[in-house]
């Protein structure tokens, strides 16, 4: 159904009007999870479009923030418990569990912090979901998990959590450079009926209110994330997809080259913020 131009104009005018209420910017709260201090703010290197970058946690209400501070309050952790079971359960034709080959999960420390990762055989970078599926199919002889399945979300949250508190970094040289450029181009390209790019909200207007939503810088250090809107965990690519749908654009697919490129660019753009997986957001 086509929306009349007036409605779109009205939305844009309204957005500007609400923005003029001058949203409060990121707050000053410090994130400490079960005694561990998490870096949610950092200065950026030369050439970065933002001077200081902030985790999305800093833009959320006190009540939302409180749910991430404790590993029981955090509703994502029940999914992590499911992953702990999966880690120890034999699967596929191999009859092996993740534990049988990998041992304890802390071997995964640092993996999430450096995603997406270059896969020389495929000739392109991969998200964590690709890596998990490659392993369970090749090494366990199991069926691959769907991107948003409870199993994949639980496992990527569990593996991601092993990098919690580590600064997000991504390889930017060699073959990754081209993908980061691709991601950057996507970030600044207008899409959809509302004809907006990621940058319009997350670079030009972060800290302001869009209606009653407090705009963040769109950082990815907390994914997979428990979102109240989803009433559950969801992947980064789901969030990308949702954002595109909000702009009335046809979203790229989970695991697509476009989303992996965007992920690579955002990993660079948020470099230095600590991983918060699994984070809690709006």
């Amino acid at each position: 159904m086509r929306k009349p131009l007036i409605a779109i104009g009205g939305f844009a005018a309204a957005a500007i009007a609400w923005a003029a209420i001058a949203g409060p910017g990121p707050d000053d709260d410090k994130l400490v999870i079960d005694g561990v201090e998490i870096t949610t703010e950092t200065e950026t290197p030369e050439g970065h479009p933002l001077d200081t970058i902030y985790s999305g946690w800093r833009f959320r209400s006190d009540e939302t923030q409180a749910l991430q501070v404790d590993d029981f309050e955090n509703p994502a952790l029940v999914a992590v418990e499911y992953a702990i079971e999966l880690w120890e359960t034999p699967a596929g034709t191999s009859g092996k569990s993740c534990k049988d080959c990998h041992g304890d999960v802390d071997i995964m420390k640092g993996l999430r912090a450096n995603m997406p990762r270059w896969n020389a055989d495929k000739g392109k970078p991969e998200s964590l979901e690709h890596i998990v599926n490659a392993s369970i199919t090749a090494h366990q002889g199991a069926e691959p998990w769907k991107w948003e399945s409870p199993e994949m979300l639980a496992m990527t949250a569990y593996i991601g959590m092993q990098s919690r508190g580590m600064p997000m970094t991504v390889k930017t040289d060699g073959p990754m450079a081209e993908w980061i450029e691709k991601g950057k181009a996507l970030y600044y390209t207008r899409v959809g009926q509302l004809d907006m790019a990621c940058s319009h909200c997350h670079e030009d207007n972060y800290g302001l209110m869009i209606r009653a939503d407090h705009l963040s810088q769109g950082m990815i250090n907390g994914f997979p994330t428990y979102r109240f809107k989803w009433q559950g965990l969801g992947s980064l690519h789901r969030r990308f997809s949702g954002c595109m749908k909000n702009i009335r654009a046809t979203p790229y697919k989970r695991g697509s080259d476009e989303f992996v490129a965007l992920e690579a660019y955002l990993a660079w753009r948020g470099g230095g913020l600590d991983i918060e997986t699994p984070a809690v957001r709006n």
């Binding site: 609400w18 209606r211 939503d213 705009l215 709006n282």
Partner: peptide, 8 residues
Amino acid sequence: VTIGGCGG
């Protein structure tokens, strides 16, 4: 109870 802008 507020109405979100984009994500909400």
